[in-house]
């Protein structure tokens, strides 16, 4: 008699076959619809609770308003798309995902540069510190963080269900997406369009949440 199991492989295959149940395949369009639905629900709820920004009609006539909303939407959508595509182990061998990573890398500095261009045309600049209005800025950070949490949670569940073979990149993209959505929602209420303010506080929130996600999410989604 030998105490060593000579065919552990058969036992493993038996166990796995016994555990076999029909599965629901990954559907990217389904996952994307969940995120879009969440975004709409959060915008409606937030505007109902906190109200639309008071000067929305004048603001809509300025470039800075559209730059801010547009940049955040582009970051959110690109990063969310990269997250969802990366959940398939075969995704690495596809050109689409690499294109999305590159688009994100190009989009982030492009948004900032555009803001700087808008800023260069601004007249009557006060002291930089005054323009930052740090009290409101910190409130903005906290708001964006809170508003990004539902997206982070939803993306976390999707990542756990998926199988990213690049966990760090997926986590960073998910963080950028959650922060982008959260900031986009907050932009409906916040009436700061100064590119410097937006770059520092919104940019800081997006980068900070992306970094946090990069640190935390891989630990929770190991497979």
């Amino acid at each position: 008699m030998t105490p060593i199991d000579l065919k552990p492989r058969d036992a493993l295959i038996d166990t796995l076959v016994d555990d076999l149940r029909p599965t629901r395949p990954l559907r990217r369009s389904h996952d994307a619809a969940i995120l879009a639905g969440l975004a709409i629900a959060e915008i409606l709820l937030f505007v109902w609770l906190r109200g639309m920004r008071s000067d929305v009609h004048e603001a809509m006539l300025t470039m800075a308003f559209w730059w801010k909303a547009g940049s955040l939407a582009v970051i959110a959508v690109l990063a969310a798309a990269a997250t969802l595509v990366s959940l398939d182990p075969a995704a690495n061998s596809r050109p689409g995902l690499a294109g999305l990573w590159r688009a994100i890398l190009v989009a982030l500095p492009a948004m900032l540069a555009l803001g700087w261009l808008l800023d260069a045309g601004a007249v009557g600049r006060a002291a930089l510190v005054a323009r930052l209005e740090w009290r409101e800025g910190v409130a903005c950070l906290v708001n964006v963080l809170l508003l990004s949490l539902p997206f982070a949670l939803a993306l976390g569940v999707l990542i756990r269900r998926g199988a990213s073979v690049q966990p760090a990149r997926t986590a960073l993209a998910a963080g950028l997406a959650a922060a982008g959505f959260g900031a986009f929602v907050f932009a409906f209420h916040c009436n700061h369009d100064d590119p410097l303010y937006v770059a520092v506080w919104y940019g800081g929130a997006v980068a900070g949440i992306g970094g946090l996600a990069r640190l935390i999410v891989p630990r929770l989604t190991r497979w």
Partner: peptide
Amino acid sequence: MIAIHAKRHTYDPARPFDAWLAGV
């Protein structure tokens, strides 16, 4: 093999299995 089992729903039958397997 356990990972293949746990993540089998992420395979898209319209695509090559080899690429999926290689990724895992």
